[in-house]
């Protein structure tokens, strides 16, 4: 871990007086998929929200591509190239698929760039082009998640934070989802994925962390955690 693209060092964070993260550290190297697993309430989502700036950390240090972003606002972080895909309801249901994608490009100064990016998305996800005029709310769960990821890609992010991409999806759809995730990564985009569906995520991840009650518990390669007896017992239900 000589060079880290994202570094989170001893971060404390939470909602108002309720502290959720009590000193969490992790790193993401360039082109790496890093996965964070842990039970409900372990602070996984809070961690991503803190990195992107929706919540400000009370203590600790976050660095992205060599500069500190501990207390930046979300729009600044987006401009730096951090894309955040929230969990579950992460699309605008009463806007059409097309409008949803256009929303992805609203912070781009150059509207031609956004249009080109949308063209590219049609090629990559033909299913979205077929559905471009219908309301995003009537897409299936998997299609919604694909839409959210496609929308995030319009900004050509340099890091993607993904919150439980498999939540509420059928196993087959989850496979498809992870296929898309893997493809994004092979194009060189590092991803930080938070998951409860630990097995799928660990198989794909280069490295992984286990979070428990707002603290780091374990850290290893994805493979390593997958074979770790404690993890198997606690999180993989074996």
């Amino acid at each position: 871990m000589t060079e880290s693209f994202l570094e989170v060092r001893d971060v404390y964070s939470g909602y108002g007086k309720i502290e959720v993260l009590h000193g969490v550290s992790l790193t993401v190297a360039p082109k790496e998929i890093v996965c964070v697993i842990g039970p409900n309430g372990s602070g996984k989502s809070t961690l991503l929200k803190t990195i992107v700036g929706l919540i400000q950390p009370t203590r600790g240090f976050i660095q992205f591509d060599g500069s500190e972003i501990s207390h930046k606002e979300p729009e600044e972080n987006v401009e730096l190239g951090i894309a955040y895909i929230p969990q579950g309801k992460n699309i605008f249901p009463s806007l059409t698929v097309m409008e949803n994608l256009e929303m992805g490009g609203i912070s781009l100064k150059d509207s031609r760039k956004a249009r080109n990016a949308i063209q590219e998305i049609w090629e990559r996800y033909p299913i979205l082009q077929k559905r471009r005029k219908i309301k995003a709310g009537s897409l299936s769960g998997g299609e919604k998640q694909v839409l959210a990821m496609a929308r995030a890609s319009i900004l050509q992010p340099r890091l993607i934070l993904l919150d439980e991409p498999s939540i509420g999806l059928a196993p087959k759809v989850i496979d498809e989802m992870y296929h898309h995730i893997n493809r994004m990564n092979r194009e060189g985009i590092p991803l930080l994925i938070v998951e409860q569906n630990a097995r799928k995520a660990l198989r794909l991840a280069h490295r992984a962390y286990v979070l428990d009650l707002g603290r780091n518990r374990l850290e290893d390669t994805g493979e390593g955690l997958l074979n770790n007896e404690e993890v198997q017992h606690l999180y993989l239900g074996r």
């Binding site: 606002e73 979300p74 729009e75 894309a83 929230p86 605008f92 256009e102 609203i106 912070s107 900004l155």
Partner: peptide, 22 residues
């Protein structure tokens, strides 16, 4: 685009912020 952003706020403020809008 302003109108679309306003509808985005109605739908989901957090998602909108994640897309880089204040």
């Amino acid at each position: 685009p302003l109108g679309r952003t306003l509808r985005g706020i109605r739908e989901d403020e957090i998602v909108l912020m994640a897309l880089g809008k204040n």
